[in-house]
Design a binder for these strands. Sequence first.
DNA 1: ACCTGAACACCGTTCAAGT
DNA 2: ACCTGAACACCGTTCAAGT
Lengths: 237, 237
Amino acid sequence: MSDSGTEADGEIAGLPARRHSLDRRMILEAGADFIETHGLRQLSMRRLGARLGVEGMSLYRHVPSRDDLLDGIVEVVLDDLYGDPEVYLEPKNGWQDYLLRLARGLRRVALARPQVFPLIATRPPQAPWIRPPLRSLRWIDSFFGALGAAGFRDDAAVAAYRAFSSFLLGHLLLEVAAKGADIAPVEMPEPQGQIPGGLEAYPHVRRLEQRLSEDRSAEEFEESLANLLNRIEALRD
Amino acid sequence: MSDSGTEADGEIAGLPARRHSLDRRMILEAGADFIETHGLRQLSMRRLGARLGVEGMSLYRHVPSRDDLLDGIVEVVLDDLYGDPEVYLEPKNGWQDYLLRLARGLRRVALARPQVFPLIATRPPQAPWIRPPLRSLRWIDSFFGALGAAGFRDDAAVAAYRAFSSFLLGHLLLEVAAKGADIAPVEMPEPQGQIPGGLEAYPHVRRLEQRLSEDRSAEEFEESLANLLNRIEALRD
DNA sequence: ACCTGAACACCGTTCAAGT
DNA sequence: ACCTGAACACCGTTCAAGT
């Protein structure tokens, strides 16, 4: 993914260059930052252009449309997984270690970009059998390679892939939403609209409100993940 | 939820009335239908107005903003759960039966409105501890009532609530997405962009493509749900 | 009381024109 | 080769005006 190119442009890499010399990669990176800072709602071609010191119309030289821009941002953010030293494309200590590392790596991506993650979760994938958040073919292929090498038959590997992606999507989307991140890829109204009628009519919720607000997401993630690995183990051979 | 009102207006209920007499409920219903038919992308105030035989600006008499319109649509669609004879607000045959019915009812809602469900899943909830897709306080309170009556301690009930919502969100969002529904609450480009480079570089995916495209979602849902109930059982007392 | 028309400040996108 | 300006067909939203 991400054919960066870098083109040996003679400039300090990773810096937004002086003035001209926009490039696709830099636009996507800026877009991801923009969403993280201001929310998807605020992202317009004109505003992103402004942030890059350029008219919005100039972006079309490098990015075919706003939709493509969003897809590109998803790709770029997911690319962090390739740079994560804790996650291996090739399993090194068995399939359980491999899945554990992959799951935790995706969680780190989600938590690093809580505003962008809903986009990772909900942008329509390139094929119907690609299941977010594992949307990169290289990782999906790596997933099946790891399970195949561990002796999983094809149907078991596919079942594992589906269970794994459902688990990640549900947990990470809700965790990121609870972080106060706007879970909606669409809009972001006020921080939190209080409950209109109050909680009088809902005694259990009222009693549990405090406890419901505690953050146990890390533990819950690990527990559910361990359970998932056990279920997957049961599918093997 | 949904203070319908109906107002004894002297007209055949449920029909879009002759000309005037817009009302909030009818706008929300039309909005849900519009999204289901044309996708969220296409929904604008002006177009929804046109569909109701009115200028878009007239909708503001009944709905404060487009955001509120979307929240209202989510509410109205989720209200189908109250009309579902298979789902009980009060448990009748123990907590497992109660959860099973609730989960299946939510799945029916998702499958009945695949284009709207992503909105249910991703619109920012009214409080941070409300976890989609179970976003109605009445149902959340009912959930805790059922588990409390079954002897769950508070922390166990909260853990169950979290596991239940993560499970539903992950499964249903991915199932609805695979249905060809546009999973994104934001946009809908072409039906499916084929993989750009082809599958040559991904041998496992290539081999498994057929199998990956098979729909086993109903069985997977039931299996994962059964497993979830076992995990929840283990939290009890 | 409820809907309409015109208006405002934006959008995404195209394209001829500038440098 | 790359960016800009003007333009087009839209948006959401407000509000005075109509009926």
